[in-house]
Structures are given as structure tokens and as C-alpha cells.
């Protein structure tokens, strides 16, 4: 599964990033607390170019280069096919950042570890970006990409 972007209806408002950041920052998706108490960082990147915008998020590749490249086994795939980072194991070598063919994986703000989309697997239900997109531009798609 992956989050798919329909750039025909993407407004470029950036709410996906707001809710993504809040969902991953330990305050259970509480936007005000997450932003006022911490410095939350969105996993998904919103790209804007020539008045078009789209979300650059993980494709959760079938044969994921990041998993193959990870030197500590921090990058893993769960039973649903979601590629995620076990942050306890991540040492911040950022090999994954370099091998990701889509430029999705990024270093955390303090450069201590890598962060990426995990389809909000810790939370129940739909990923936050899909749930809160005001224009239905994001959807959870079944298919996966091959790099």
C-alpha cells in the first residue's frame, strides 16, 4: 500500500504535512501541542513547481533499495508491506537517504536518524495525510511500485 497523489486536485495547502508531522511527534496527533511543545517534522514532502503541487511520499517499493542498503537492519518491511524504520536501530548513516530513488527519506532535524513515511502504522485507521486532505487529493492505494 502507498499514499497516492492526484495532483489534479492537490491545492498545495500543506495540511498533509501539518497532520503528518503532528501524527509522528508523540502527542497523538494533537496539532497544537505537537507544534507548540516540539519541532515536529513532516515525513511527506510537498513539492510545488510551476503552480502544480504534489506530495513526495514513500512508494513502499516491493524490492526496496533502502532496506537492502540499510547497514543496521533498521529499515524493515512489515507483514502488510509497509516499509518503516526501527528508530532504535537507526544510527543515522543516511545510506537510505542516498539510495532512495524518489528522494523521500530524509534526515531528522537533529541529524540523529533517518525518517520516512510509515503509513501511520502506529495509529489506527487511515494515514493522517489521507484522512485530513481537504480536497480528497490523497488516497491509500493498494498497488506498489518497483524502483
Amino acid at each position: 500500500m502507498k499514499v497516492q497523489n492526484n495532483s489534479e486536485y492537490c491545492l498545495g495547502c500543506g495540511l498533509c504535512q501539518v497532520y503528518c508531522a503532528a501524527a509522528h511527534d508523540g502527542y497523538n496527533g494533537n496539532v497544537i501541542k505537537a507544534f507548540k511543545k516540539g519541532t515536529p517534522q513532516a515525513r511527506a514532502g510537498l513539492i510545488k513547481k510551476n503552480h502544480e503541487s504534489w506530495i513526495n511520499t514513500c512508494r513502499h517499493c516491493q524490492d526496496a533499495p533502502c532496506i537492502n542498503a540499510c547497514i543496521t537492519g533498521a529499515l524493515q518491511k512489515d507483514e502488510k508491506g509497509t516499509v518503516f524504520i526501527d528508530s532504535q536501530r537507526c544510527v543515522g548513516c543516511f545510506t537510505c537517504v542516498m539510495v532512495c530513488p524518489f528522494g523521500h527519506i530524509q534526515p531528522s532535524r537533529d541529524s540523529s536518524r533517518a525518517i520516512k513515511c510509515d503509513l501511520c502504522r502506529g495509529l489506527s485507521g487511515t494515514p493522517a495525510c489521507v484522512a485530513f486532505c481537504p480536497n480528497g487529493a490523497l488516497r491509500l492505494a493498494e498497488e506498489v511500485d518497483r524502483p
Binding site: 491545492l11 498545495g12 495547502c13 500543506g14 495540511l15 504535512q17 501539518v18 497544537i32 507548540k36
Partner: peptide, 13 residues
């Protein structure tokens, strides 16, 4: 101001 998180959604909308 207690609520505004400077996300910039109002600006771009």
C-alpha cells in the same frame, strides 16, 4: 496566537 502554529495554510490559500 496560542493556537497559530505558523503552518502557512492561510497564507497559501
Amino acid at each position: 496566537e496560542e493556537r497559530c502554529i505558523r503552518c502557512g495554510v492561510c497564507v497559501n490559500q
